[in-house]
Write a protein that binds this DNA or RNA. Structure first.
Lengths: 337, 337
DNA sequence: CATTAGCAGTCGGTAGACTCGACTGCTACC
DNA sequence: GGTAGCAGTCGAGTCTACCGACTGCTAATG
């Protein structure tokens, strides 16, 4: 083993030890936890070099080393490949998806909780961008006198609905419904569908209202963020500077839109793991995000992710998001189940 | 002013000061903040008596007094009547409800956030007990080949929907739909509706599936808890013993069912404010809950509440939940708007 | 009898001094 | 290049002393 290779091993060991114990890792700890065939003095020399290169840092002079964000990055890029989930957890995931018969919203919500449980960190599930989902069918249904329900079935199995006030019924309603379907089917829910007049002013009015309601609301829903395991963030307190940091994090998660666009942005750039200062968002300076997209019928349908402190078991988190996203995609395959 | 009356005023002052400053209140502070016409020595005597009676306590010998849960209780019962919201906040509430055009779920969710913002505490909104809401109409609609949507409109304006697989269409579907409506209309969504066979085995099968899906899922939805302002809990850290307490609280809020049944239970017993140890739930020992039911068409439709530390501005919280619940009820009045 | 002034007593919190021990960096040597 | 060993650094914990914020009590007063 040449020197460079050994230094890489030292870095790996430091990351693993630090993730496990949360305490700065001493040179001696490294030699004890892994048989490198060199003494602690040599490891010390390696560590000073790793520090010069920016992978490690010392919280204070007479302490061990802890990884920098760059150190974590190296670790993730080099020592994290192809990890599987332990059998127990693998079973837990399978069981969860096998036994589920929930509506989509609930499913996504509970998926986020499953992921939180698996990783002991907060977890998020993001729906697909509204612009990316095609409308499968759309129609208007009278549900009681004076009330019409607009129903839109989307490509990812979601059913959007919107309640409207209207006295239309019978043939008039059918006409409006057909026009509604024509306006939306095959397109996205972007708020600029072209409406073909039916020649019936009442029907046209309802049509316009329905399209407006559905397109504005869908944007809202598809931007929805499902968050699980927020309590873990509080438990991880000590990893963050102050309680105010935790509060700001929770606030951001409640805000939703920031996180949603961040996640989409990361994925657009092909990033699966974003570590500490790599995040542009201030609140996330001490956090890392581990993501995996899930697909329905080959098309990107959304994202699952883990949000934890930079001191996180990345291998485990990656395995967890991979397993969950894959199973979730499979479950969503049959339309609206 | 006789002595008993003065003692009550002292208690009131201690509560107000402690809520404001979070520091134990000294006898001198009381005489300074309110003109009682007596010296601090007299207030000291009053305080020892109030302590003997269980309304106040000393964190340690050489410190001022802080209210006990019993002290807060007395305060809430005697000094909290008929407080209105400050004009600014009153406007904020009115604006929120005036400008809203959201679907019910979103509305409830955002209402919880409004309430959190008003009070600077976490806020919850609980839907009505499933058993208490009557079905207005129910029907089955074909939305695409092989897929049927079950739609149920509830008395509180909610629209429940459930996607089912079925190839039925045309007359068969209409028959099933009519039977579906007959089975549910006017009743509750309790899972024991009586099904009248249509004579058509296919329709009967769909009917059974639809009723099953709707009743089991509705229970889930109506037990849903909308939580706003969880970040406030983290910010209130210092009011709680440890960060673990905060974590447990967040967990409980995520669990939902505990809180929902607790809130219903309190309201059933006519309780609006539950203070610290009055709560049976362990996690809430350091918390208080301030509740107000909201009504739709005279019937109880749900509850809004504030969840904060026992050291809370009860007058303000009571005013806030009252204002929000009233406006929310009014907004929900027209069916499904 | 209620109220008050004043004083002694209690205790938490903070600052400073000191020690312990866990590391590293360096140097001399192999 | 690798190693042994020693000097140096610094955080964390402990102890002490002290300050100041209150109270409780007592004796005096209207």
């Amino acid at each position: 083993m040449d020197a460079a290779q050994r230094r890489a091993t030292v870095l790996k060991t430091v990351v693993e030890e630090y993730v496990r114990t949360a305490a700065p890792v001493a040179s001696q700890t490294v030699t004890e936890s892994r048989d490198l065939g060199v003494s602690s003095a040599t490891v010390r020399n390696d560590m000073t070099q790793l520090e010069r290169e920016g992978y490690l840092t010392q919280p204070h002079t007479s302490a061990g080393r802890i990884p920098t964000d760059l150190g974590y990055r190296y670790f993730v890029d080099h020592f994290t490949a192809a990890g599987g989930l332990p059998v127990g957890q693998r079973r837990a995931v399978a069981d969860f998806f096998a036994s589920t018969h929930r509506a989509l919203e609930d499913l996504l919500h509970e998926t986020s909780q499953l992921l939180a449980k698996l990783t002991s960190h907060a977890a998020v599930v993001v729906g697909p961008d509204a612009d990316a989902v095609r409308v499968r069918t759309a129609q208007l249904v009278a549900i009681e006198p004076g009330t019409v329900l607009a129903v839109v079935v989307l490509g990812n199995g979601t059913v959007e609905r919107e309640v409207l006030r209207s006295d239309l019924e019978g043939e008039q309603l059918n006409r409006a419904s057909a026009a509604f379907d024509a306006a939306l089917r095959g397109g996205t829910l972007a708020p600029n569908a072209t409406l073909t007049p039916t020649g019936d002013p009442d029907a046209d009015a309802l049509l316009a209202a329905a399209v407006h309601a559905v397109t504005t609301r869908a944007r809202h829903v598809s931007d929805h963020l499902y968050v699980g395991g927020v309590s873990r963030l509080a438990a991880e307190q000590d990893a963050f500077a102050t309680t105010a940091t935790t509060a700001r994090l929770l606030e951001m998660l409640e805000e939703q839109v920031v996180v949603v666009s961040l996640v989409r942005d990361l994925l657009d750039h092909g990033v699966n793991v974003s570590i500490g200062s790599e995040n542009d968002v201030d609140e996330l300076r001490d956090c890392s995000i581990v993501l995996a997209p899930y697909e329905v019928e080959g098309a990107l349908a959304g994202t699952v992710g883990v949000l934890g402190p930079t001191r996180m078991d990345y291998a485990q988190a990656l395995a967890a998001v991979a397993a969950v996203s894959q199973q979730l995609g499979r479950l969503l395959l049959p339309p609206a189940r």
